[in-house]
Write a protein that binds this DNA or RNA. Structure first.
Length: 396
DNA sequence: CCTCCACTGGAAACCTAGGCTC
DNA sequence: GAGCCTAGGTTTCCAGTGGAGG
């Protein structure tokens, strides 16, 4: 074991540090210059610029697939807007509704950015949605705030019966003398269809589409980032090309491309390479996928883990009924509650979305209609990751 | 062309754990 | 403490269904 440790350190010593500024590749990093997005930037700047003479800018709606720069562009423009604001009345915040999780937590995050009096703070739970919205409006009005709200993945808010979005777009009077401008961001191009037309008309006053980056554009972006992040000469052009090609084949996702490059750099450094070669990119690509699966697996609730173990007993794939049978046995054995088949069917659908299981609906004619279920994780990984759970050791 | 299986997936209702207000 | 609220997971109920076998 000691040899292993020594070997790692020796390698680390040999390889010189390849990074000069790792943060230039971090997911939160927003460069001052976003190439190929000049027109979107100037568009947004023009709209939001109104706020500098104290009147309310139009609401904005930004569309485009993941990694097309929507979030970065919105945050960059808003950041510069705040820098230009001498009156210091402009307040901006960024909330991702999907990451926040629920409508209530989204509002909670929004409220965090606002000055709230001691007795008006928002608790993690307990208040009605309308009460929280009321407190947010009150704070904006009282302090005369010019509030620019960037709502990322806004699609997660449309299916609410509270009509929070509607209230937000119609805040007008209630927040005077302050105002509330919404910059909505959506990955889902069909999201408009689900939106209440009243909301759409005011939310979509200005609409902007972000097309995916081409492989060539990705290459140029990566080259620029690599120049800032790595020491000169450690990232050959072929590496950039491969990285761009890998990400480009996945619909021009710049975030993925940048992630890949960062991890490849870490791999190269750890293994004591003098440069980040194509091999490192390939390894990084595998690592990203492996991490995603293990993380998803680990954070699964107990019942979902038992279900996936049950499903893994059928390497060739099976159907819902079989999985349910196996599951209920396992659950009883580990003295967990036994859920209904309806719920198990639902959980299998969730696992499908996570990409841990393949659950396609198939019809077998006379023999009914069910999901064809196949676990997409090999049994060793499953045993290793889930085996850490005491109580589930008696599995495979 | 019709049947009928083994479910699917929508809807509503229920439950628990948290927190509010009075 | 009583009587409200919410989130989020679950159960209950059930109409709906693709297509192989008749």
């Amino acid at each position: 074991m000691d040899d292993g440790i020594d070997a790692i350190f020796t390698k680390a010593k040999q390889g010189r540090a390849l990074f000069q500024d790792r943060s230039a590749l971090s997911p939160e990093f927003i460069p001052d210059h976003l190439p190929f997005r000049e027109s979107q930037i100037s568009n947004i700047a023009q709209v939001l610029g109104t706020a500098l003479h104290g009147s309310k800018p139009s609401n904005l709606l930004l569309y485009g697939k993941t990694g097309t720069g929507k979030t970065a562009v919105a945050r960059l423009v808003v950041r510069k807007l705040q820098n230009q604001d001498d009156s210091k009345q402009i307040l901006a915040t960024y909330v991702n509704s999907r990451i926040a999780g629920t409508e209530y937590r989204t509002l909670f995050k929004i409220a965090e950015a606002l000055p709230l009096e001691e007795d008006k703070r928002i608790p993690l739970t307990g208040l009605s949605i309308s009460e929280v919205v009321g407190r947010i409006f009150e704070s904006i009005a009282k302090n005369g705030i010019h509030f620019v709200l960037i709502l990322d993945e806004i699609d997660y808010l449309v299916n609410s019966e509270h009509e929070t979005l509607y209230q937000f777009t119609r805040a007008g009077e209630q927040v005077a003398p302050g105002f509330l401008t919404i910059v909505g961001i959506s990955n889902d191009l069909r999201f408009k269809e689900a939106l209440d037309p009243r909301v759409l008309s005011s939310l979509g006053e200005e609409e902007l589409v972000f097309p995916p980056y081409t492989t060539e554009e990705l290459r140029s972006i990566l080259a620029e980032r690599a120049k800032a992040a790595f020491k000169p000469g450690v990232v050959p052009e072929s590496t950039i090309n491969l990285c761009a090609a890998l990400a480009g084949s996945e619909h021009g996702d710049a975030r993925r491309a940048v992630d890949l490059l960062r991890i490849a750099g870490e791999v190269a450094e750890r293994e004591g390479h003098q440069s980040v070669d194509e091999e490192c990119i390939r390894k990084a690509s595998q690592k990203v996928e492996r991490d995603r699966v293990e993380e998803a697996l680990q954070s699964l609730p107990l019942q979902n883990k038992i279900i996936i173990i049950a499903a893994s007993k059928f390497p060739g794939g099976t159907n819902t009924g079989e999985v349910y049978l196996a599951y209920s046995n396992l659950a009883r054995k580990s003295s967990a509650e036994v859920l209904t088949q309806r719920r198990v069917s639902g959980i299998l659908a969730e696992l499908d979305v996570l990409g841990l299981v393949e659950a396609a609906v198939v019809s077998k004619g006379r023999r009914g209609r069910t999901k064809r279920i196949k676990v997409l994780i090999d049994n060793e990984t499953l045993a290793r990751v889930i085996g850490e759970d005491a109580g589930l050791l008696d599995l495979a």
